[in-house]
């Protein structure tokens, strides 16, 4: 089932930011695959960050001896909004075909972001061409991000273990010049498996 995460507040070809009101148990989740309908296409991305900014007022409240439930709810639901969700673009769908490349155009302001789970997640992760779009981002926790995404993709399959073995092989091919990094990534997958 698709769940609305929030709406685009800032976007570029490679990344976009989404604003949402509150954290719910199921969204937004680090490493999860998400999509934005853009005209006839869909742009896919991975959630790499969920950020709540502070301000002097919430800092003051945080250190008070007594913090009331109404104050907490006010901060969470009225003041600290939007919660900003960072999304890394990893592909798009055009004419029914999923492409693991950057899209021709980014989504625009206030486009809606949805979760992509179950069949949609399985379909997107049938191929591993998007790995490089993730691994090339050294300013992000790219390895952690990819590992999290692969765990969700494995969970969505009946043969999750085999899927992870295939993903590990692809990672070994891509990172054969960086064995330390490869080892770290494979350990993350193995820990889960």
């Amino acid at each position: 089932m698709e769940i609305q995460v929030g709406r685009i507040i800032r976007s570029s070809t490679t990344r976009f930011a989404v604003g949402c009101r509150v954290l719910r148990p199921e969204v937004p989740v680090f490493g999860s695959l998400v999509k934005v309908p853009v005209l006839d296409d869909e742009v896919y991305g991975l959630i790499y960050d969920v950020c709540m900014e502070d301000d002097p007022y919430v800092r003051q409240i945080a250190v008070q001896e007594e913090v009331r439930a109404e104050h907490i709810e006010d901060q969470r639901r009225n003041r600290q909004v939007p919660i900003e969700v960072g999304v890394l673009v990893v592909g798009y769908r055009r004419g029914g075909t999923i492409v693991h490349r950057l899209p021709p155009q980014p989504p625009t302001s206030l486009d809606v972001l949805y979760t992509c789970t179950g069949e949609g997640l399985v379909e997107f992760t049938r191929r591993f061409d998007y790995f490089r779009l993730v691994l090339d981002n050294r300013d992000l926790p790219a390895d952690e991000l990819l590992a999290a995404n692969l765990r969700y993709a494995a969970e969505a399959r009946s043969d999750g273990q085999a899927f992870l073995v295939d993903a590990g092989r692809e990672l070994a091919r891509l990172l054969n010049m960086d064995l330390v990094r490869l080892d770290g990534l494979l350990r993350r997958l193995r820990d889960w498996a």
């Binding site: 439930a69 109404e70 709810e73 006010d74 969470r76 639901r77 009225n78």
Partner: peptide, 11 residues
Amino acid sequence: FRHGSGQAPEV
């Protein structure tokens, strides 16, 4: 602000 309700205030 609904004191005692535990609810977020309406703004």
